[in-house]
Design a protein around this nucleic acid. Sequence first.
DNA 1: GACACCATAAACAGAT
DNA 2: AATCTGTTTATGGTGT
Length: 663
Amino acid sequence: MQEAGTAEATSNGTVKQNGVVVEGGLRDIRSKSATPSSDITATNLMTLQQQQALQVARQLLLKQQQQQSGAIKSPKNNEKQPALQVPVSVAMMTPQVITPQQMQQILQQQVLSPQQLQILLQQQQALMLQQQQLQDFYKKQQESLQLQLLQQQHGSKQHSKEVSAQQLAFQQQLLQVQQLQQQHLLSLQRQGLLSIQANQNLPLHSLAQGVIPAELQQLWKEVTGAHVKEENSGSNNGHRGLDLSSASPVPPKSSLLNQHATTNGQYSSHALKRESSALDEHTHHSHPLYAHGVCKWPGCEAVFEDFHSFLKHLNNEHALDDRSTAQCRVQMQVVQQLELQLAKDKERLQAMMTHLHVKSTEPKPTPQPLNLVSNATLSKTAPGASPPLSLPQTPTTPTTPLTPLSQAHSVITPTSLHSVGPIRRRYSDKYNMPISPDIGQNKEFYMNTDVRPPFTYASLIRQAILESPEKQLTLNEIYNWFTRMFAYFRRNAATWKNAVRHNLSLHKCFVRVENVKGAVWTVDEIEFQKRRPQKISGSPALVKNIQTSLGYGPVLPASFQASMAENSIPLYTTASIGSPTLNSLASAIREEMNGAMDHGNSNGSDSSPGRSPLSAMHHISVKEEPLDPEEHEGPLSLVTANHSPDFDHHRDYEDDHGNEDML
DNA sequence: GACACCATAAACAGAT
DNA sequence: AATCTGTTTATGGTGT
């Protein structure tokens, strides 16, 4: 929500001046209060018990929904959402589907890529379906329960059995939904939609929360409590026979709080083994289902004075019957889910470790870049991919080696063999959000959707120019590119065209070149990639290192640098050749690399490999002479291409307006 | 709070 | 004269 707020605020000016309508105010949609379904007046304890269980189930589901949607909409405020007593009816009737307004909002915030949104929508819809089914099930169950209660006022064994069957079915259903939600949750996490907080959870914790949270355990007890306790009362604790409708402050409850093995008795067979085995050496007999004097059978938690009582209980109460079988099935599902999750997390961990290790050590080509290139998703940072335009570096992404030196030579444009300057980006993270895994799709998306692209004018202009065959465009052609590529720029022309002109003039990286047919604009890649070393200003050496070719600058001869740049090109060129969307791909690659360098800059430590072959591919113009000695080191500024160097548009104020001492 | 970056608006001038 | 192109300044929002 924080982000939403800022994005909204940012666009407010736009709204005011452009007429761009940004849907706002989807805050706190969920936090409406309502009356809990407390109108249950059944006199029968059994009914109360069932109602209670149902309510708990609903609230549990609702909580999870809120957790999810809350994470999506306002990760930072997640913890602020109290576990509110939400109206059951409202909760069940209000599937957590993202409204068009919310979607628009999210889009405006550039939090999600279009693909992510699509997936999210689908998942939301699936979830909604499941919940509706569950809701129907609830209703049916309630109806039948009440019917039965009316017919069998005195509660017979048969009744118990039917209820039990229904409870089991309910448990199954609930578990399915739980799992579905967990998958959804995980999916969201994978897509980075959930807060870091959520991701910070240790795998087992998140699992426990997602699959078998304490609430579920509670629910389980509520649902199964009737007979279990009934049965227990018969065999062990007769004094608890009437303790059906209350929260039953019995020992099992309290034990539930202090042992993780207990809170998730269904998932923690390993933990149980460890825990119990350790303890058993001293006091208890060893049994996975017995710990701390409590039966660990899912939903049981009967307390026993000694192990033999437990064994007796186990044989009697958890013998092979329908209920036990069903519970066992459920437990199997739980375990499967956990194993699946564990495998996924292991995989992720492995990938993370590999990723970090490789990047932090060797600046050589990694499978990742290659992979990404082959997939046309060029993002070395995110597992996902990148948009066709300027891209993203994620804050967490170290710079990857982007200069494969051993690639075979291939198609290189005449203008391509040039230096690689330090890549510097000026975007805030907001503009560097990875927005899509598929370049083509993103392109389509922005072409057809009236959503503001998450890129600065400068990067867009640059993109437009670089996509052109000649790497140069007239102002009008730039305009056309904007309108062609982005639906968003098909209106409010006066505003954004002014902005384009403003940017062209303002930024040194855009060089106006007089042509036969007028003036065209080109990109000075070095200038574009420059960025004031804000975060590393305290370290001149570092700055220098960054500003020169990855530290090669001051050390290596120009020829070597050029060679490196040249050698680095083929990979990307080849990659782009293989892609149906040549230009986009190449551009994305370039952008991607820029992003990498950008990160390197901010990081200050790993800027090296990111040298941008891009600049080599597109470097067209360069200032006659460096205005800032520290910015142009050696050969890097010598690159010239297909334009005459006679221009005198030195716009020094690009780096910051403070530079402009024109007054 | 200072600073950097960006977007937007607008004034202005020269060219077409 | 109107429009386009380009430059410059001012202002405000946002993030660091």
